[in-house]
Design a protein around this nucleic acid. Structure first.
Length: 414
RNA sequence: CGGGAGAUGGCAGAGCGGUUGAAUGCACCGGUCUUGAAAACCGGCGAGGGUAAUACCUCCGGGGGUUCGAAUCCCCCUCUCCCGGCCA
């Protein structure tokens, strides 16, 4: 959530920043007006409450002195009605403010380039050169005809489209990748956690998926519970409503989880193969830091994911997302795109984001700094999307006879 | 899913209608003492809003109600624990 004080005191700056994310200024102006109305409504309410509190305390004193309380009681009964009215106004405004503030995205960092969509993202660097094949490399679904690692048809039978089944070496490679990734991350000081795949509304509010993106989530029928779209949600919320000790920071965590996404709005996109599924595996990095540390930790997370790809021998590039392509909660995001020789293009395989204090404000994740409670910074990044890594290995490690080699680092996991 | 008990500050745990935002203990922070540490003693120590700083307001699981006044009384919900059933 945005800092309402900034809306009140530095409106122009917020507007300028959110222009990068194409947020309608009218929404912000509305927010500003409501917040000011709320402020004055409270100024009306609080003296009434103060009076009620002070005068109510007179009753035991009057009783001791044997004084009559009739008049006082009448006066306070009257005041009570005024309080109820003023309170009603305050509550309505609070509700309105909450409703509007929670759907405004995070402000982009100054380093975020201007741009409309993914075409305006800025390539920072390429890592590893794609190898040249002496034959025409196949796409993973063609390779699979030979390998029989992925069963697309029966995935659909069991659930619906965009579900698949892994078999044989495919299933084993998936498992090997998860273990390898977790080991890689823990060697770099990230602590492993295993979290629930089903979370409540508050948790999803905390990281920003709700209230705005409910349609993208699988909801449990009859309960106010949802399947997680990423481990970022439960892991970040581990510290919701907590005040951490500054010495504990940065908190560096890594978690494997299955992820569930409705992929609403991506009809017709990536319908072939295993690129875009309703259920996929991912190993995630989540950090909670002080504002002072967050920039450095962001680089550390990015390097971790990039080095992981390098260690697997997978060529990739770093893309700095432009304002138009930034996610709701992110202030800054670098995507990692892996080279897929079969598709002859780079495809997203990781996304590392710094949300600054946006999620921390929503989730009330603070730390104590010299007796003061300050909002923490939260960061998240994939390291990596497992299914896409599997595909990348298939396509990059394919041989002319249709067989697939296993990357050296994974051999001991197979 | 059935029967019982409960939810209070970082933890433990009082309070059960009136200067109680909350006793006490532990933990924590500062000080005295000590070569240093421990012990002992003194002081501080929940969160959010508001203010230049005070005042002041809100919060005792969540929501509603009774009252001049609620942590305390009533209703609903959620969660936790114990007993039984079911089950990885």
């Amino acid at each position: 959530m945005l800092d309402i004080k900034l809306i009140q005191n530095d409106f122009e700056t917020i507007c300028a920043k959110l222009r990068k994310k194409k947020v309608d200024e009218i929404l912000l102006e509305e927010l500003r007006v409501i917040s000011l109305e709320l402020k004055s409504a409270k100024l009306l309410l609080e003296p009434l409450q103060a009076e009620q509190n002070a005068k109510s305390k007179l009753f035991p004193i009057y009783a001791k002195e044997g004084k009559d309380t009739k008049a006082l009681q009448a006066e306070l009964s009257d005041n009570k009605i005024k309080i109820a009215e003023a309170l009603e106004t305050v509550r309505n405004l609070e509700e309105k403010l909450e409703e509007r503030a929670t759907v405004i995205p995070n402000t982009p960092d100054d380093s975020v380039p201007l741009g409309e969509d993914e075409n305006d993202n800025v390539e920072i660097k390429k890592v590893l050169t794609p190898k040249t094949f002496s034959f025409t490399p196949k796409e993973h679904w063609d390779l699979d005809k030979e390998q029989n690692w992925i069963d697309f048809e029966r995935g659909v039978k069991l659930a619906k489209s965009r579900f698949s089944v892994l078999k044989n070496q495919g299933a084993k490679l998936e498992r090997a990748l998860i273990n390898y990734m977790l080991d890689f991350n823990t060697a770099r000081g990230f602590h492993e956690v295993a979290v629930p795949y089903i979370v409540n509304r508050e948790t999803l509010m905390g990281t920003g998926q709700l209230p705005k993106f409910e349609d993208d989530l699988f909801k449990i029928d009859g309960e106010d519970l949802f399947l997680i779209p990423t481990a970022e949600v439960p892991v970040t919320n581990l510290f919701r409503d907590e005040i951490l000790k500054i010495e504990e920071l940065p908190l560096k965590m890594t978690a494997y989880s299955a992820c569930f996404r409705k992929e609403a709005g991506s009809a017709g996109k990536d319908t072939r193969g295993m690129i875009r599924q309703h259920q996929f595996d991912k190993v995630e990095l989540v950090c909670i830091t002080t504002p002072e540390q967050s920039e450095a930790i962001f680089e550390e997370m990015l390097n971790c994911a990039s080095d992981l790809l390098t260690s697997l021998g997978l060529p990739h590039r770093h893309l700095l997302l432009c304002g138009g392509d930034l996610g709701f909660s992110a202030a800054k995001t670098v995507d990692l795109e892996v080279w897929l020789p079969g598709q002859n293009r780079y495809r997203e395989i990781s996304s590392v984001s710094n949300t600054f204090d946006f999620q921390a404000r929503r989730a009330k994740i603070r730390f104590k700094d010299e007796n003061k409670n300050r909002l923490a910074h939260t960061l998240n990044g994939s390291s990596l999307a497992v299914g896409r890594t599997l595909i990348a290995i298939m396509e990059n490690y394919q041989n002319e006879d249709g067989s697939i080699s296993i990357p050296e680092v994974l051999k001991k996991y197979m």
